[in-house]
Design a protein around this nucleic acid. Structure first.
Lengths: 245, 245
DNA sequence: CGCCGTATTGAGCGCTCTCAAGCTAGGTGG
DNA sequence: CCACCTAGCTTGAGAGCGCTCAATACGGCG
């Protein structure tokens, strides 16, 4: 269902990667929410945003909550492709195929996304070069995610995953303390591990006093040790905040 | 060393994803090789194209041979991020960081790449909307690669990897028969497996008469069986040829 | 308060890793 | 042209990590 438009005091808007465009400062006037964002969707937990093979039409900026994209293989097993957290944009993966190659589903209740028609987004690119760079920037950023999912040990994978999440959530929360929007099952699926293994690893990391983990609440206690476990599996990246101008 | 420019009869140019621009038909005149491609580089096996942390300046279209991008972790272990085969373009991963987040190295002798300055490429986008779509298309395509690297069994990973390669090489060779440009070690590294495991799998797939593998020469004998092993781990994708117009 | 999805914990097995020893092929130099 | 040399590939044996299956505990939501 459609929602009210852009609100520059809304914290979910402040964290959005497209904030600088929706906030319509100076010469970006034309890009105010009414133009760029067609409507907002509120999604409940496990509510589908788009489905595999749907005709590609929109990309979506995540304002609150989170989503996962996934594909169901021949066994009926779900394979998670990517997570999309508040401030990130999904849908670009469909440019290549012209239909969505994955399904996208909310992993948190109260997930809110802004629907951005792709064709109109492309149209604005010519008037707003900065928007163009931004799009390429978003798409490029994804390339650096998930480098660690082939790490030889489960511990390395989870450590790197937590560090990546911590970086991606940087803009919104404390770097060392954050709340997982995904289940153990989903983490395991994404990392190529059984959910039980993920659970055991959380226990182990807590016993070593490297993190504390109360259900989905994670606090990184020993950042250095966690980085050591991850073995520099992530290339050091600038916080994306820097580009939000 | 710089090389002669675009040659529309050169098979390596014909297979390039940017062929339609370099071939300069009609209104794309301005995009002939001299403008889009600054120079060509010939690389020997294991010769570096760019290095981690180098200032981002160019993307590179692979005309012949192949490359891998990789990152060296804290253990000194190489972690392969992606392979780039003839007709594909690398370097976009650096947009986000403004330096190359991985190193790129040739995995075949006689690798040839066309150097395309990113800023000038961006400049042409405004005059040639089709070029813009193409760039987004290339970048989007990468999102669909490597979905299978977290598959639970090694056999599934390798089967899916071979199928993906077969699709990516479609434009250049027979779909069922192709030549691997990467070593067993590299395949294992990419798939999160030991090289020995990869080797054993090749042996096993041969004994089942699903493929034949003489060193780097691969022939898929039973496509259906290979797809069954891969468990539909790849979303079905159109051959990129279709978009080369 | 009771339910159901999620998380934890345990036991035992099997796949893949490691280490190690041959083998093959392609390239080099005599 | 052939012998050597080296990197890459294959094959084997044994160990260990993570998976499966199963039972129990937790916690959010009605």
């Amino acid at each position: 269902m459609p929602d009210e438009g852009f609100d520059k005091n809304n914290p979910t808007c402040k964290n959005c990667m497209l904030y600088c465009f929706c906030s319509a400062p100076m010469d970006y006037q034309a890009l105010s929410a009414q133009l760029l964002v067609r409507k907002k969707h509120k999604l409940k937990h496990k509510e589908l945003l788009y489905s595999y093979r749907d005709q590609f039409a929109n990309v979506y900026a995540v304002k609150a909550g989170g989503l996962k994209t996934y594909h169901v293989d021949a066994d009926g097993q779900e394979r998670i492709h990517q997570f999309y957290l508040a401030g990130e944009i999904l849908g670009f993966e469909a440019i290549y195929t012209d239909y969505y190659p994955f399904s996208a589903i909310a992993i948190a209740s109260d997930t809110v996304v802004c629907e951005i028609p792709y064709e109109s987004l492309l149209g604005y690119v010519y008037s707003y070069p900065e928007l163009h760079r931004k799009i390429l920037y978003f798409m490029s950023q994804r390339y650096t995610f998930g480098l660690y999912i082939t790490a030889p040990s489960a511990e390395q994978r989870l450590a790197a995953f937590l560090l990546e999440l911590s970086g991606r959530l940087h803009a919104q929360e404390q770097r060392q303390e954050f709340s997982l929007s995904m289940s153990r099952q989903d983490i395991g699926n994404y990392l190529g591990l059984a959910a039980e293994t993920v659970s055991r690893l959380f226990t182990r990391l807590q016993q070593s006093n490297i993190i504390s983990a109360n259900n989905r609440k994670i606090k990184i206690l020993e950042m250095r040790k966690l980085q050591w476990l991850a073995q520099d599996r992530l290339p050091s990246l600038p916080p994306h905040k820097a580009l939000i101008s």
